[in-house]
Amino acid sequence: MFRSARHAGAAMNTVPEDFADRRVVVVDDNRNFQQVMRVMLRSFGFRRIDVIAEADHFLGHLEHHHVDFAFVDLVMTGTGGSRQAGLSLIRAVRRSPVVVNRAMPMVLVTGHASRGVIVASVEAGADHVLAKPVSPHTVLGCLKALKGSERSYGRGADGYFGPDIAEARQRLERRLRLSEGRRPEAPHATSLPAPAAGSGRPYPVPGFNVPVRDESSHFLD
């Protein structure tokens, strides 16, 4: 992690993206990481930055505010937190009918980016994964992918609305095969249907662009 929030801001020298009117939420109970993310996001042009330290406050916040991006830590130890709190929160958001922006991209942030965590994040409905320690380059690259890539979300019978899980599994499997020197299998039909007619345009959703290695590796952009 960065030595200080000041170091984080100084490390980013770029023209701000068009993020001034976008709301971003950082869900993490580590004060140093909260401050690093605040400084970093401000340097990208964000002016509406919410920081939530308690896992059980996140869903309520989304029920009252239109949030454009969310960075969710995997491990939180406060009220409502656990070693898998981030995955539980993402699962809950993807199935909540009262979240204001159900097409909100969610990024799982973790210092434990094993293959198992990556697979679990796909199943939970995360759009992207970032491994700690983060850098301005990887965070900004992630945001650009979230903002610029077009891919329709899928719906599930249990109320799920989010990235097409079957499609995400296929992309992850292709990366696994490529990282292991195996030939990727041909794509096949996904199991989740596309959004129902009249649900609007395709939403900006990135792919999982983290290299997959082994259980002990970090998965970085």
Rank of each mutant, 00 (worst) to 15 (best):
R95V: 08
R23L: 03
I49D: 03
A186P: 08
L178Q: 07
R94V: 06
N30T: 11
M106P: 02
V93P: 00
R95L: 08
L59I: 14
G86L: 01
A131E: 00
M104G: 03
P211H: 14
V119G: 09
A157D: 15
M40A: 09
P202V: 10
A70K: 02
G80I: 03
L176G: 12
F44W: 14
M37D: 09
A186E: 14
F33R: 08
H66D: 09
P195F: 01
L192E: 12
R47C: 15
A126R: 03
L143Y: 10
S216H: 13
A186H: 08
M76I: 08
S96C: 08
D221S: 05
M76H: 05
N13P: 07
P204C: 05
H137R: 14
G198C: 06
G154K: 06
F46I: 11
P133L: 00
M1I: 13
A168L: 15
S152Q: 02
G154P: 02
H7L: 14
M40Y: 12
H64P: 00
M12P: 15
I52S: 10
D158E: 03
A197T: 04
R213L: 10
S199I: 03
V75H: 09
S114W: 00
D29W: 05
I118Y: 03
R31V: 15
N32E: 13
Y160N: 10
G86Y: 07
D68Q: 05
T190A: 13
E185N: 12
G198H: 05
R3C: 14
D56Y: 04
A53Q: 08
R177D: 12
V93Y: 10
R83P: 06
A157I: 15
S96P: 04
V210W: 00
V117C: 02
G45F: 10
V100G: 15
A197Q: 04
I90G: 01
G159N: 13
D28P: 09
R182H: 12
S135W: 05
R175Y: 06
H66R: 10
G198M: 02
M106I: 11
V36Q: 12
R38H: 07
A186Y: 07
V36R: 02
V27C: 11
R151Q: 14
L62F: 06
P136T: 11
K132V: 00
L192T: 11
R94C: 07
V98R: 11
P195E: 06
E185A: 12
F161V: 07
N101I: 06
P204S: 11
G156Y: 14
P202I: 06
A70N: 03
L172N: 15
N32P: 09
G80D: 04
L172F: 11
S43W: 07
